[in-house]
């Protein structure tokens, strides 16, 4: 790791102002990506501004038809949150599958979506649930937030403060974990909104990061059942391929994980 200056912000405003004063600052949440990258000397921020101890950024709240997860809430807290389990059990379940226990105790939803790893779990939930990303400047619809590999709509210095999820009628998540990293080799989140819209999002599959799967959405719109997906064909082109999964395998996983997510959603 190179020399850097560490700041522990006590408020979102303080974090933003520290950022503005630094030459090449990075925000630190759970540190599950930034710290390994810094240790490998692949990142050399002048300043590291820690958001994880800002009280206003931690917590899970349900209110009416909305579940709000504040950005610095660790995955473990979401996985074990009564509010989350009651409002959107599939989301709590997704959080329980992220990485391993050490990752879940540290990693946060804000850090995960701001990093937008193409195999991260949360982006699938945000996209399928039509969530809204709250920042210190604005609100961004999930479908506008994710912009491809490791790219988001966030502007320089903009801080994710919370994510709010409309409570769906039904939702389910199914994931084939990457055997080494435990990211999603492919994970699929399916949701049926209270207004009857069907949204399906896959992570770990596309070369462009998290994606909606319109063919499966159409099939489920007609018939919300695993069997409805049997006849859907997912093309392998444009899908990720690496030593742990060919593009064809991932195409298969999109379908199989979607079927299992639907089965889990009931």
């Amino acid at each position: 790791m190179y020399q850097t200056t560490y700041h522990r912000a006590s408020s979102v405003d303080e974090a933003a102002s520290l950022f503005a004063k630094s030459s090449e600052a990075k925000f630190l949440a759970g540190g599950q990506t930034l710290l390994p990258v810094m240790k490998q000397r692949l990142a050399s921020p002048s300043d590291v501004i820690d958001l994880a101890k800002i009280k206003d950024m931690i917590g899970v709240e349900a209110s009416g038809d909305t579940l709000t997860i504040k950005a610095a809430t660790p995955h473990y807290d979401v996985a074990t949150s009564d509010a989350a389990k009651k409002a959107i059990p599939a989301l709590a379940y997704l959080a329980s599958l992220i990485g391993d226990p050490a990752v879940r105790y540290r990693g946060t939803i804000g850090g995960s979506i701001a990093n937008n790893d193409p195999a991260a779990d949360y982006p699938a939930a945000l996209l399928a649930l039509d969530a809204t990303v709250k920042t210190n400047k604005r609100s961004i619809a999930a479908s506008d937030f994710f912009k491809g590999l490791f790219t988001t709509a966030l502007e320089d210095g903009e801080i994710v403060t919370a994510v709010s999820f409309p409570v769906p009628a039904k939702a389910g998540y199914s994931k084939m974990p990457h055997p080494a990293s435990r990211f999603a080799l492919t994970g699929v989140f399916v949701a049926q909104t209270k207004s009857g819209e069907v949204r399906v999002a896959a992570t770990g599959a596309s070369q462009n990061g998290v994606m909606r799967v319109s063919a499966i959405e159409a099939a489920l719109k007609t018939n919300w059942s695993p069997a409805a997906i049997d006849s859907v064909s997912i093309p392998a082109s444009g899908l990720l391929a690496d030593i742990h999964g060919t593009a064809e395998y991932r195409a298969n996983l999109v379908k199989v994980m979607a079927q299992r997510a639907v089965a889990a959603a009931g």
Partner: peptide
């Protein structure tokens, strides 16, 4: 291609 635990899959207890 497999020079870290992110790519080289070591067995874990749940495997």
């Amino acid at each position: 291609v497999t020079a870290s635990f992110m790519d080289y899959a070591m067995p874990r207890a749940d495997d």
